[in-house]
């Protein structure tokens, strides 16, 4: 008996100590792992141009893209373009989310509204959103309104579909719990349906945001004097690939940051989820 205790004691101490150091290592290692691939590729390309293996004229090396960004930032142009694009995305995303959430909730909750609304909305969804561009320009003019409208259309559909689908798939058994406690309609929505659809809603928001960033480029292609999309067109017309790559890089950074913001804001609300998390707890 005593012997077994002796042999197991150090083992216990060891296993207890391991997770702490592991966790510290993982906190840095996990995000770092995601950066390995892009950094390696960038570095390889930089070396290829530096060694003269490629002249880097059409595909400028990272250092030249970086210089371009710094140059744009120095003249103040960069912040002007970013502000313009960001405000277009914000306005379009906001409108699309509000409309998509309201109509999605209505279609999900009331069967009659769904039978009335959904076929039309699904038919509209089948139209490639870019096809609206000429009409929006005719109706709303070439300036901000038509651009915001296009982005809002792009954001609307995934949010609408996400909210409606999520409400329709709420577990009947959970709704019955609400019924046995005699919740009124609004209370049922607030205390049962909203929390139940939240995880799916967050996904819908993130998909919508991605489409928002996609459509802002399309919107800025259709005639803009500023914005990151304008930088792309300008770079193409004046043959400045470094400027195009600079704009693309900034799109990537902004897209990732805004997506991360949604994740950051909603994570505390979803802590209750009993979900499959590949690769362990986040």
């Amino acid at each position: 008996m005593a012997m077994t205790l002796d042999t197991t004691a150090p083992d216990v101490a060891e296993t207890r100590e391991k997770p702490a150091s592991n966790r510290r290592w993982q906190r840095f290692a996990r995000p770092a792992l995601g950066v390995v691939l892009p950094l390696t590729l960038a570095l390889a390309w930089e070396l290829a141009v530096w060694s003269g293996w490629s002249n880097g004229r059409l595909v400028p090396p990272p250092s030249r893209v970086f210089t371009t960004i710094m140059e744009l930032a120095r003249t103040g142009e960069l912040s002007r373009h970013i502000t313009t694009t960001l405000s277009r995305v914000t306005a379009g995303f906001g409108l699309g989310v509000v409309a998509g959430t309201l109509l999605g909730a209505i279609s999900g909750y009331w069967g009659i509204a769904r039978q009335l609304l959904d076929p039309t909305i699904q038919a509209l969804r089948a139209i490639p959103s870019i096809a609206w561009v000429p009409l929006f320009i005719l109706w709303l003019g070439i300036f901000e309104t038509s651009k915001v409208a296009l982005i809002a259309v792009g954001v609307f559909f995934p949010v609408y579909l996400g909210v409606m689908g999520a409400i329709l798939s709420v577990d009947r058994k959970i709704v019955e719990v609400g019924r046995t406690f005699r919740l009124s309609g609004p209370a049922m929505i607030r205390r049962i349906l909203l929390p139940a659809v939240l995880p799916a809603y967050v996904v819908a928001l993130r998909v919508g945001l991605g489409l928002g960033w996609m459509f802002v480029v399309a919107a800025e292609f259709m005639g803009a004097s500023e914005g990151l999309g304008y930088l792309l067109i300008d770079g193409q017309q004046l043959g400045k690939p470094a400027q195009i790559l600079a704009a693309i890089t900034i799109f990537a950074l902004l897209g990732k940051t805004t997506d991360w913001l949604i994740e950051l804001i909603t994570t505390p609300l979803l802590r209750w989820q009993d979900a499959f998390r590949p690769g362990g707890e986040a």
Binding site: K173, I174, E176, V177, I192, P195, A196, L198, W272, Q273, D274
Partner: peptide, 8 residues
């Protein structure tokens, strides 16, 4: 089933 509300 217990039917607890998982978010509470």
């Amino acid at each position: 089933e217990p039917r607890l509300l998982p978010w509470l």
